[in-house]
Design a protein around this nucleic acid. Sequence first.
DNA 1: CGATCACGTCAACATGGCTGACATAAAAGC
DNA 2: GCTTTTATGTCAGCCATGTTGACGTGATCG
Lengths: 170, 170
Amino acid sequence: MADIKAGVNQLFLREEELRTGMELLFYAYREFTAEPDEILAEIGFGRAHHRVIYFVGRYPKITVSELLAILKITKQSLSRVLGELVRQEYILQQTGVRDRRQRLLELTDKGVELERLLSETQRQRIARAYRMAGAEAVEGFRKVMLGMMDEEDRAKFAPPVPARLAAVKR
Amino acid sequence: MADIKAGVNQLFLREEELRTGMELLFYAYREFTAEPDEILAEIGFGRAHHRVIYFVGRYPKITVSELLAILKITKQSLSRVLGELVRQEYILQQTGVRDRRQRLLELTDKGVELERLLSETQRQRIARAYRMAGAEAVEGFRKVMLGMMDEEDRAKFAPPVPARLAAVKR
DNA sequence: CGATCACGTCAACATGGCTGACATAAAAGC
DNA sequence: GCTTTTATGTCAGCCATGTTGACGTGATCG
């Protein structure tokens, strides 16, 4: 009798714990994106522009197809925002030297500035969370987030020789 | 000289660490929503429907305005998806007894079934991540996620007397 | 009884996904 | 050298989900 009750309780706690995890993710992600979204709205951009600017800043000289692979959207969707960013000179396209079909993407100075403006609030938010939680908690956070991903994305964070992009031919 | 170099290195590590945090969030959240999104698409629903079903399941007899406060969308946006869910009998509306202006929302059996179907993959994903990471890491994850939120949302997770919704008059 | 509140609804618009089709230049393969 | 594949771009249209603004109705409150 006591055993059954304990079992049920265990199940309840587990369910509750998992729900809490889902909600932590929901609320944290929403607030994480809220501030940049406001800034973006002011200049007529959306979250999609931020993502493009972010990853181009992260991986200078990235190709269009590499960017597509990261974002996992269609080239038509990307082209809309990327086109605007190029026309408004936030991003520069250079024809690849080894492969002239490629358009290597890079932030202009204007692009770097916008990237900083947008991501700074997010970096501060994370920095604050890391500070409040402590180094050990950060390691736990990292572990859980990695466990949430499929192998493919998890590989992007592999510690030995970040097999990201830069490794390959360009 | 060595000091300067160490300082620069520190800065670099910090910057890199924060970027990693941002990306962990980006990738994990995307994969977290990917599976339910597929199921939803098959029955002609979207992520918005999932969110409504989830929170109505979480807080039975929730009112429309409470739901709006959680989702932080406009009533017009909510009304579209909520209307569909009610018409297709996933959600039941009951006039409040104490306040007849309120429409108390509840999942029907059909709604409970769909909620389970949708959230089960997410719960499993979290359970897997928790298992892989270990109890201590989970606590760290919780701390970091809470640190990421503004006070308002953080309060929803306050351990003493969950001042969620149920507390108030209905 | 008048103001406020909870909720609903109509209309119009923007963003950012999607599919499908077609185009072009460069590279790779036989 | 000719053919096929690849990297990229582009047009057109659809869908989901967010927005603002205006207006309506019944219930509650002071």
